[in-house]
Amino acid sequence: MALCEAEKTFVLHGVEENFRVDGREREDYRPIELETNIVSHAFGSARLRLANTDVLVAVKIEVDVPYPERPKEGKLEFFVDCSANATPDFEGRGGEDLAIEISNSLSAAYKSPEVFDLTKLCILKGHKCWKIFVDILLLECGGNLYDAVSIAVKAALWDTRIPLVKSVTVDGNNVDMEVSDELHDCQKLDVTAAPIMVTVCKIGEQCIVDPNVAEELCSVGAVVIAVSKDKFSTVLQIGSGSLHPQTLLECLQMGEKVAQRLSEALTETLSEINPNKNQDVGFLK
């Protein structure tokens, strides 16, 4: 997508007047639709549509061996796949750098034990643990990928069920474990503190959230802020522009405020979803 100077000026003036091209104010999000439990063979799944941005997340689990330096912890890994149908920019290997950048940002955001407690995934210290694979597929790109991905990941982890281990037997170097065969004999992951990412863009002299594609092209600089409760779990600068320290502070303040509002809306929405039934829920309209 390319914008002429007149179109960029139109976007800039709209942001200055706090009335963006789609009618939103600077701190408003576009309508969000969320579905959970939609991939039958996954342990948890979610699909999120943020206007024209479409993200699918599936969670898989397997038994693994803990890292030697962290014998009491399980493992959590993120994989991002940019579908060639999402945007022409992803044809060939065009989406690889973006996929790596998003997966690395998620790993950094979930690194702290205050955000996601990996000790809950330990089965037997130093021998067995659960390894969680979070597979993310970008189906369509309509701007603001980081925010959409973070919300979909949190919803998919909320939907995830960990099988209940009934017994563990140690015989020398051999470890045998018995997993319950009951479908509903499982435990949920605690995602209360799981981070929400908010992308804050600087356009002209103002900052906005949830930029669409046109606004991303007009941005002079942007940061992605991952907020867990009232703390920052990571801050990432994206794009080629730079930000003044005072502008960065304003971005952090706006990102924290918006993330809190977004997290509350997501928590309320997830609490209304029946985990045994596919549901499509919209919020933040």
Rank of each mutant, 00 (worst) to 15 (best):
K128S: 15
L138H: 02
P163C: 03
L164T: 03
I132K: 13
L145V: 11
L138Q: 03
G142S: 13
I162T: 06
I123L: 06
D135S: 08
I123H: 01
G126C: 01
P163H: 02
Y146S: 15
K131M: 07
I132P: 11
G142V: 13
K166Q: 13
L139V: 14
A156H: 05
L138I: 15
L121F: 01
V170H: 06
C122V: 04
V134W: 01
A155G: 06
Y146T: 07
V134G: 05
L139E: 10
I151D: 03
H127P: 03
L124V: 07
L137H: 07
I162Y: 00
L124H: 13
A156K: 05
L164P: 03
V134F: 01
I151H: 02
K154W: 04
K166W: 02
V165F: 01
L145D: 08
C141M: 10
A155M: 02
K125Y: 00
A148Q: 14
L137A: 09
L137G: 06
I136F: 01
C129M: 02
S150L: 11
Y146P: 05
V165H: 05
T160C: 14
L164C: 11
V153F: 07
K131A: 15
D159V: 05
I162K: 07
S167N: 15
K166R: 12
K128V: 03
L145I: 13
K131P: 03
D147I: 06
F133D: 14
F133W: 12
H127I: 02
L145Y: 01
L157E: 04
K131L: 13
I136T: 01
A148W: 13
A152M: 08
W158S: 15
S150H: 06
D159L: 02
S150D: 08
L124C: 09
E140W: 07
S150N: 14
V149I: 13
G142W: 05
G142N: 09
K166H: 06
V165E: 07
I136M: 04
K154H: 08
A152L: 06
L121E: 01
D171C: 10
F133R: 09
T169M: 11
G143Q: 10
A152P: 06
G126S: 09
A152S: 07
A152K: 04
W130F: 05
A156M: 08
L145T: 10
V168N: 00
W158K: 11
T169C: 09
